[in-house]
Nucleic acid binder design. Structure first.
Ligand SMILES: [Mn+2]
Ligand SMILES: [Mn+2]
Ligand SMILES: [Mn+2]
Ligand SMILES: [Mn+2]
Lengths: 148, 148
DNA sequence: GTATAAACTAAGCCTTGGCTAAATTATAAG
DNA sequence: CTTATAATTTAGCCAAGGCTTAGTTTATAC
């Protein structure tokens, strides 16, 4: 017995969990810059009160997170003023939104409801590699063409 | 201009982020019980040293996490002895493995490479709702049948 | 223009989940 | 049976990301 071979190599398995942990580290940053970018587009500015309410956290929590983002060079703001994205922040926002949209559209295209696609894509987006993203794009194309 | 309507309702958006945060809370638990179950199947027992090396963390980190899992009723173990799953832990392991396998098989079935499917599914699995899972299963079935 | 309300910051607390270094226990070798 | 090695625990540190409560600043209303 002792079906060895069922388990992957330890260091490979470890590498995968490490990669997931890495993704989680950048997750808050991606969600925040994406939201800030949206707020600026639609409202002309991003206020803490809106960031907090849309992220589903209290204002002090949003404030502290934004301090981290500022420390790491993604946003800029002066006390009691609204929040701006740095170039680095804008770049990440653009990249994140694109990836998020692809995951969302992909879920729709395979038959997931709008509501569920909206919900699931918010978490999935951070764990989809470039390779998988490419496949997603292909599937979106294929599922939208066939309408003769 | 001012394309209002572009932003979802604040409370709905907040609910989505809250849901992702909820998923992250159970993520460690799911990955640990699934791994422990695998180790018991293949090696006959689950030792801390193996859990740690396969999770990609140090032994003290694994030890502390397992103490939490024990506190929450998912595992049992006596000092310096190997780790056992409670009924609750076994149930969660089974459920988690099933979901993980579906996500993995789904990625394969749409054309993602074995290596990438292995990596991406480790993170994605925790953010896939029941509805999406159902769609995944359907796609797996459809993509495996057509071979006449 | 001043009073009230809203937005924001400050301070302090908590849990999770990482780490290292040192002590303890169990196992293996000789 | 004793000793060396391996496994595990303990203690203590840290950062992220949550929270509440209280103070400060800005904006609004009158
Ligand atoms: Mn997200
Ligand atoms: Mn995640
Ligand atoms: Mn899993
Ligand atoms: Mn996982």
């Amino acid at each position: 017995m002792r079906d060895e071979g069922k388990l992957p190599e330890a260091h490979e398995q470890a590498a995968r969990f490490t990669q997931v942990r890495e993704a989680h580290k950048t997750e808050a940053t991606e969600d925040y810059v994406e939201l800030i970018d949206d707020l600026i587009r639609v409202h002309g500015e991003a206020r803490l009160v809106d960031v907090a309410s849309r992220m589903g956290v209290t204002q002090p929590t949003a404030s502290k997170t934004l301090a981290r983002l500022q420390r790491d060079g993604f946003v800029n703001s002066e006390p009691y003023r609204s929040i701006f994205l740095t170039d680095q922040g804008k770049a990440l926002a653009t990249e994140s939104r694109l990836r998020h949209e692809i995951v969302f559209e992909f879920l729709l295209s395979i038959g997931v409801s709008h509501e569920t696609a909206t919900r699931d894509s918010e978490g999935m987006e951070h764990h989809v590699s470039e390779e998988t993203l490419k496949v997603f794009k292909k599937v979106i194309r294929q599922n939208s063409k066939p309408k003769p």
